[in-house]
């Protein structure tokens, strides 16, 4: 089992990949990639049953990045896991590249769902979870949602259906970074008591600090072992975490750093002499 310190170092490397990708492309979504990455690193390294050499292995656990714009985070961990190469990361948003702007199952190995339109991933995950049950497989389905994404009504259709169908193999990881596209969630559409909402919909709920690796590992354990109905891990995160000027800043939801900001970010991420 990978230690929390090893996971932290891996997450640091992934953050470097993320900033590199959006800087090179001069486009893309750093904020939600940096907030989700500690979660993705722990999920892939400690919990997800996948085979990088056989990405289409039928009995693999499924991971669905429903907030598909946060693709740099997913590409980073896919590269560190060996699904794709580090060289592939340079193809982010480049014509013909496997790292499309939004994660796409037709383009990139290791991607289970073509996302980019918010509010679709949980329903897809439901289908995958029902399939797993029909096949009497132990496999689990994990869906990463954004907090702004929760405003799509379709998320709640899926949430209701998951509890109705008692899908214990269906799990959500919520990246609760408090920011969406234009502004803070609180300004765009107040969310009130998110844990209470999921509980009322019949879900098992656990809350963690989404940047505390020990808590994250615990949280993943909670998801994979709680199988009496669907479960959600609400991870309190900071959008843009790890880069000072991106942290908690709505401006870096979908904007790339300039050269000066890039150099500063690399320094902060411990890439000396960058």
């Amino acid at each position: 089992m990978t230690s929390p310190d090893e996971l932290r170092e891996l997450a640091r490397r992934c953050r470097v990949h993320i900033v590199n990708m959006v800087h090179r492309a001069q486009a893309g979504h750093p904020g939600g990639s940096l907030s989700e990455i500690d979660l993705l690193v722990a999920l892939y390294k400690t919990t997800l049953r996948v085979r990088p050499s056989d990405p289409r292995w039928e009995d693999r656990d499924r991971f669905i990045l429903s907030k598909g714009h946060a693709s740099p985070g997913m590409y980073a961990i896919l590269a560190e896991m060996g699904f794709i190469s580090e060289e592939d990361l340079t193809s982010y948003r480049v014509l013909g590249g496997i790292c499309q702007g939004h994660v796409d199952m037709k383009w990139c190995p290791g991607v289970d769902f073509s996302a980019g339109s918010l509010g679709m991933g949980l329903s897809f995950g439901l289908g995958a979870a029902i399939a797993g049950r029909l096949e009497e497989s132990e496999r689990q389905v994990y869906v990463m949602l954004g907090d702004g994404e929760l405003q799509e009504g379709s998320v709640w259709e899926a949430a209701m259906a998951a509890a109705h169908h008692e899908l214990g193999n269906l799990n959500v990881i919520l990246d609760r970074n408090r920011i969406q596209n234009d502004d803070f969630c609180e300004a765009q559409m107040r969310m009130f008591d998110i844990p209470a909402k999921w509980k009322a919909f019949g879900w098992n709920v656990k809350e963690i600090d989404g940047h505390n690796m020990e808590e994250i590992v615990d949280g993943m354990q909670f998801l994979s072992t709680t199988n009496s109905g669907p479960s959600i891990l609400i991870a309190h995160t900071v959008k843009g975490h790890g880069v000072s000027f991106m942290a908690d800043n709505p401006a870096f939801h979908g904007a790339a750093p300039n050269d000066e900001q890039y150099a500063l970010a690399m320094q902060e991420l411990g890439e000396v002499g960058a």
């Binding site: 492309a25 486009a27 893309g28 598909g68 948003r93 480049v94 499309q100 702007g101 939004h102 796409d104 073509s114 996302a115 980019g116 339109s117």
Partner: peptide, 17 residues
């Protein structure tokens, strides 16, 4: 209703957009 970012011209966001 105004739909911005129409067409393939919208660019690197890719096919979903």
């Amino acid at each position: 209703v105004c739909g911005s970012h129409g067409g393939t011209h919208t660019g690197t966001d890719g096919s979903s957009a």
